[in-house]
Design a protein around this nucleic acid. Structure first.
Lengths: 140, 140
DNA sequence: TATTTATGATTGTATAATACAACTATAACC
DNA sequence: GGTTATAGTTGTATTATACAATCATAAATA
């Protein structure tokens, strides 16, 4: 790998993180954390915070708080596990699914706006490489 | 652009941000904010917080605090503008340059580790596309 | 079976990064 | 010389996170 490419990636990643952590902060709707949690929940079905934390690679306490916030907002419901007195399931509500979809659509739209004029080849590669990079991060 | 690519980018960006904000948080050395500020300072030369804030697209108050923290740690020095009683310059110190270099090298190394086995073509594209994406964000 | 240990979850506390609003001091303008 | 603009700082709030302590229940063990 060329050192130039590596240096570019290093710098641009730092900038990207800075830019996106703040850019996505101003939301009337969902925040990024809730969004990923809801998505994961939709994907995993009925699971508790421990499983979610593992899947999202977050601390259990973090997920516990996030889930409580979502429960508060009626985006999910918390159900006692009948077979284990300590455990709970979370279920995304219909309202939660709606909100998720609204947020996701808004995100898609604003990203699409950023990518106008990009050659198809570039958007395709960008998606593929981001995914590949995340995979590497996950396996690290 | 294919909807599939767009959806991939949308999701993978959200994941990436989550992953990197936490992954880069555990540092004995510099934090990401300080790092970018020092880099910018090295690049811009003697400027005050207002200029830095504009260049970094951050609020002045944020940069003011960050700069104060760097000053505290002797990574920069704060110099009164002789021509304007309200204003200051910041200068990166030798120590600051050393620390910057140490941190940057560490970052390069850990990113390089993630990219082992990537075809040269992919690392080249990834750098180029990240830069392109940041540019789009900046111009938004 | 009674005690110990492990586990799912929550809560207390701390930190980092940020923004907006209020404020201070100085400069510029008229 | 009084008003307005500007550079910077500080107060306050929010979001996202981790680690440590704790609680309640389950599982293992003696």
């Amino acid at each position: 790998m060329s050192n130039k490419s590596l240096e570019t990636i290093e710098l641009e990643l730092a900038i990207l993180i800075r830019r996106l952590t703040t850019a996505t902060a101003d939301n009337r709707n969902l925040d990024r954390a809730s969004y990923l949690l809801l998505r994961q929940l939709l994907h995993s079905g009925q699971v508790g915070v421990k499983t979610l934390a593992r899947e999202l690679q977050l601390d259990v306490s973090t997920v516990s708080r996030q889930a409580a916030a979502l429960d508060q907002k009626k985006l999910v419901e918390k159900i006692k596990d009948p077979t284990d007195g300590r455990a709970f399931f979370y279920n995304i509500t219909d309202y939660g699914q709606q909100e998720l979809e609204i947020y996701r659509t808004a995100r898609l739209t604003s990203i699409e706006r950023l990518l106008t004029n990009w050659p198809d080849e570039d958007t395709e590669s960008f998606g593929r490489l981001l995914k590949q990079f995340n995979q590497a991060l996950r396996e690290r």
